[in-house]
Each structure stands twice: as C-alpha cells, then as structure tokens.
Design a protein around this nucleic acid. Structure first.
Lengths: 228, 228
DNA sequence: ACAAAAGTGTTTTGTTTACACCCATGA
DNA sequence: TCATGGGTGTAAACAAAACACTTTTGT
C-alpha cells in the first residue's frame, strides 16, 4: 500500500573536551567512526545507524553512541533532521541527528583504533555525507546554548572548581572570561552548590569544590522537558 | 536486506493571528484538518502527510501546507522530530514537524468547511495523536523566538505600523508592552525601514508605515541559514 | 617572602523599565 | 477644543564589564 519511502537513520554528534596536542589548552573534540562500505568508504563519519521499530529516537541515539564509543552521555538533545534528497548518493536517507556532551574522563576511556578516533573540531578533515555541515550546526548550537543554559556542567564530573567550569566556557566560546565576573554570573544562576571541600596540592590558594544542583534541568526545553 | 522501518511523515503547525470572537483582540490560531480514517477518525489533526522520495523535508511541509489550506508561509522552520514508539496505535510513525507563520490576510482566505477549520490556541480541544503536545511545543518556540528574533514581521503584510507590530508581540506573548519602549526596542534592531507614507482615516495622529528590511533574515539559524 | 591563582569590592558603562509629556488628526 | 493614539524625553533601576585589591596556599 505504501509508496517507497526514504530510510531513517539516527546519528549523534558527541562533544568532549580534550587538551590540544600542541598548546595543551582544552578544546572541543568529537568521536568519529570509519565508513566500512560505500558510499564514502574509508572516510570518517558520525556514529549512528538505522532506526529500529521498537526504540524511540533518543534511545536509538544513546544506543548507537554506546555501541560505537562505549560512552554514556551527560546530556543528550535532538539537534535537527537532515533530509535533502541528494545528501547520500543512490539511497535516500533522512537522518535525525542528536548531540551529546560527555565528561572528559569518560571520553579518555575510548580507545582510538583503526575504526574509531577523536578529531578536534578546530581542524576537521572532510567527513562523509553532509556531516561537516552537521558538525558545524551542532557547534553553533553548543556555543549559543552555552550562553543561556547550564550545559557546561555536563562536561565535568560531580565536583569541580569554578576555574574548571570557566575553562569549559572558555574552550567552547574560544575567548577568555574574567574570573571575577564569571563567578558572579554563575552564582546568579543558582545552578551550583558549594561543598565544604577544597582541592589540595596546588601551589596557590586552594579552590572550593562545587557540584551542580541536580534538582534543576541542564536546559529548558519547554513542554518537552520530561520526555524521552 | 533492510529490516522493517518506521514510516516517515511531515506535519506543520501553522500560526496566524485572528481576532478573538468574543473580545476582538488578536490571538493565535492554527488550521487543522479532520481525520478521515482510523486511528482518531473524526478528530482534528495537524496538516501533513507522508514524505515522498523526491522532495526535501521543507518542501514536503510546504506542499502539504498548500494542499490542505492553500496557504504559502512567510516563515517556515523545522520544529522537532517526534518518534515515540507509541505515538500512533498499530503503526510506527516518525513525524518531522515544521512550524510556519502566515499573514492574517491570507489566512482569512482559507474557507472553513467540514474538513478544515481554524482553532484558537487559547482553547484547543483534544487533537489526534500527540498533536496537543506538538502544538504546545510550537507555541513555546514561537514565544521564545519572538523575544530574540524578527519573526513577528511574518504575520504582517508589506507595510505596517509600529502599533500593528506591537499588537503581534502582545498577542503572542500575551502581555501588554509599553509603546514607547517597544518602538525603541524595534528601532535598535534596525530590522525595519521607515517609509514616507502614513495611514489615514484614524481619529488621531496618523501612524507612519514601515516595512521590513528584506536584506536581513527573519531569524538566525546559524550554519543552516541558506539551506532549503 | 614570593608567586600564583582564589576570591572580594568598587567604579564605570550600558541596557531596560516606568512614566511624563508633546504632536497631529477626526469629530 | 477635546479625545485618542502616535511619537519623544528623561530619570530611575538594573545588569554587565573592567579592574584594583585582598586572601591563602606551596615553595
């Protein structure tokens, strides 16, 4: 009864912060997987796969993310559905793309091998399909969303110092931030709670450790807030 | 070779401003179509239809929008992809939903009949599928986006007064705005240009007519700006 | 004591809000 | 000339940015 339909895939842009190999400064990286068939055989591509009948879109994103990188995201949100007719040669594929943030510690657990690697978003090669456009758009969303939400915390562990949180913002926004004003800005959002512990072993005044207030959402997604 | 896949549909939430039948104040309305088959037979639903092989997502949204209402939108943007496994009984359907703004004048051209009607978003009945959630989310996007972009102009014709533009904002945000501050706020965005003409026939000082600067986009969609 | 980053205080600048007041028209 | 909304001016309140300065640690 149905005409032939485009096939449906789910992909995910996964962001983590890692040190720049040259400068050592924190920068934004993504994991990619190698194409093991045509088209774009051998090229790097975003992790993803076809959508199966019994899983929701977000579940599919989580699953393919876990399968290819072993990671579980701190933050996962739908990015956009890409459906140009010519985005894949031969086949017609509509990709529903999610974007995710993972902690740098867990990101380090992902072993680079022949078929999976991390790439710096500062210096991306040509990816398969329209994945360069997708990553550009995901980066744009990451940067705009960082300015009005609390997603930066998804890059960090349970406890963190304000300097670490500021480093996240600086890495994503690619500009230095005044420590004093940053502190007040974050305190004004009331999104973090101070612990009574401090980091030790630095050769200067020890910084207080904070943790995020888990009773608050990382981002306001309106009526979709409690959805899967 | 492929497993069975969810089917793909495109739907659109179309907003227009129309006078409230009681108060006469401008309010937000959407057109809906009647379900002519199960499931949800007889219920109102968002205009939409299956995605065909040779059209992009936005084209499909425009097409179904035109087919069901005869309208052409001033503004069209992707809203979200809805894909819960249980959002349609029996069938598994993933809906990529767009939202659109149309001018009130063109909206009036749509004849209500047995199978198409306009509903006030202030007082929606129970719609088919998860369409109430979809409309809620579209309304949320409309309201948040109106505060930081120039989409309000898509509700109006070529020429308009600042009072008309303010009326759009007030209808969407559902709160009164100071005319003096509103004027300065709009002028600061530089998104409109003054004409040398004024409205006549009012029993007070005639208001200047403005038009929007067509060299600017209505909204910043980042790297997706020039896409179809 | 000194270097270095944590953390506080203060001044300046800019933006938003509230509201008083003048202007131009129809009746 | 009066009522009505169009349009301008201005001061208060608030928020953001810039930067001097004090605190607390390791060496």
């Amino acid at each position: 009864m149905n005409e032939q339909q485009p096939s449906l895939a789910v992909s995910t842009v996964i962001f983590a912060l890692r040190p720049d190999p040259v400068t050592g400064a924190a920068t934004v990286w993504i994991p990619v997987v190698r194409r093991i068939r045509e088209p774009y055989l051998g090229k790097w591509a975003l992790p993803g796969g076809p959508l199966t009948m019994n899983e929701s879109l977000a579940s599919a994103a989580s699953r393919t993310l876990e399968e290819t990188t072993g990671l579980a995201p701190q933050f996962l949100e739908q990015l956009y559905a890409f459906g140009s007719v010519d985005r894949s040669p031969e086949l017609r594929v509509v990709s529903i793309v999610y974007w995710a943030l993972v902690q740098s510690v867990t990101a380090d657990a992902v072993r680079d091998d022949e078929n999976v690697t991390w790439l710096s978003t500062d210096d991306l090669p040509e990816l398969a399909f329209d994945h360069n456009l997708i990553v550009d758009y995901a980066l744009w969303r990451l940067r705009t969303k960082m300015e009005y939400s609390r997603i930066a915390q998804a890059f960090l562990g349970e406890d963190f110092t304000l300097a670490q949180l500021r480093e996240v913002h600086e890495a994503v926004l690619q500009k230095p931030l005044d420590p004093a004003n940053f502190r007040r800005m974050i305190e004004a959002t009331k999104s973090i709670v101070a612990t009574d512990r401090h980091v030790t072993g630095t050769r200067h005044r020890p910084a207080r450790l904070y943790r995020y207030d888990t009773s608050l959402e990382l981002a306001d997604s309106g009526p979709l807030a409690t959805h899967v």
